[in-house]
């Protein structure tokens, strides 16, 4: 039976991931509506949830067109890369004790590797479209993602130092007494910002900034291929949220005192839901920065913060080791 859990979980993630991503498209629009004092899609079905179905039918039955001037093979391959990479990323997420596909001792690095592979989707999509707006979007995403990957990796090193392992299960277990969101507050801030930049969502969606690049890297995409890009983006949002909860908010551990009232899986899901809502709030509240502002924020603010965090964490750990 225990051998079957990873297989079952993989199937649940494959199917559930797609469904949750589809529902998220509606949920995000409704929530944005609430925060921006308007309705959002509210006509189809209860609360407008039928909108998900309508959107899916529309996207599935659209003509699957490849522009004649595009690089055909790469154009078709590009949207699949982001979905595959993000789905692979879920393999190491520990949802609850014993509920994960695989617990490897390089879990954190595996996650970083998968997010860095997802960049190719945007890059190759922009390049294969053979369109200047798509190319500009792809170029921006390359520079943005490669830069923010650096801080993303570095901001997690504090967590790794404190738990002494790259394994995500070990990291969650190290947070039994105190969540890392208190002791690694600087790491958390940098990781959240880098996470938004990596999943290129508003306010950091410069690769597709519609007011200057029409639709950026997916200008030429439509129908199912466009849906794949969207699916990848929402899977990325979910993956980043899962990672924030795992690394900084105690994973499956509930809050002290009331933590035992409900099962670990509920606490994990609840916290992920909360983080996703926070990301939507960011989208509703903050306007898009200019491209050079984004890059200088990265290299002039985020990099020093992560390095300071690393030095302080290391010093405190060594000091505690000497004292204890």
């Amino acid at each position: 039976m225990s051998e079957l859990i990873p297989v079952l979980l993989a199937l649940i993630i494959l199917i559930g991931g797609v469904i949750v991503a589809a529902v998220l498209t509606w949920f995000e629009r409704r929530l944005l509506g609430v925060w921006q004092d308007r309705y959002g899609p509210n006509r189809l079905g209860p609360l407008g949830i039928g909108q998900v179905l309508a959107d899916m039918i529309k996207l599935l039955f659209k003509d699957d067109w490849v522009p004649p001037f595009a690089d055909k093979v790469v154009f078709i391959f590009a949207p699949t890369a982001i979905v595959v990479a993000m789905m692979m990323g879920f393999a190491v997420v520990p949802f609850a004790p014993g509920m994960m596909i695989i617990d490897v001792n390089i879990g954190l690095l595996f996650f970083l590797g998968m997010t860095s592979l997802a960049v190719y989707s945007v890059l190759l999509g922009g390049l294969a479209s053979n369109n200047k707006y798509a190319l500009l979007g792809g170029l921006r995403s390359a520079a943005q993602m490669v830069s923010y990957e650096v801080f993303m990796g570095l901001s997690l090193m504090g967590v790794v130092m404190m738990s002494g392992s790259f394994s995500l299960v070990a990291i969650v277990e190290a947070q039994t007494d105190l969540w890392f969101c208190f002791s690694q507050i600087l790491g958390l801030i940098v990781f959240v910002i880098a996470g938004i930049a990596e999943s290129h969502r508003l306010p950091f969606d410069l690769p597709e900034a519609e007011h200057e690049l029409t639709a950026g890297f997916h200008t030429e995409y439509g129908g199912m291929k466009f849906a794949m890009f969207m699916l990848g983006e929402y899977l990325g949002l979910m993956l980043i949220s899962c990672m924030i909860v795992t690394l900084f908010f105690g994973g499956w551990h509930g809050p002290a005192l009331i933590g035992h009232w409900l099962p670990p899986l509920f606490w994990f899901g609840f916290k992920v839901f909360f983080v996703i809502c926070f990301f939507v709030l960011l989208r509703a509240a903050i306007p898009r920065p200019r491209y050079d502002q984004l890059m200088s924020l990265g290299w002039k603010v985020m990099l020093p913060i992560t390095l300071i965090n690393l030095v302080i964490t290391g010093a405190v750990l060594l000091w505690m080791e000497g004292a204890g």
Partner: peptide, 8 residues
């Protein structure tokens, strides 16, 4: 990614 960047 940097290689692809240069080619772009």
């Amino acid at each position: 990614v940097l290689f692809v960047f240069v080619i772009m």
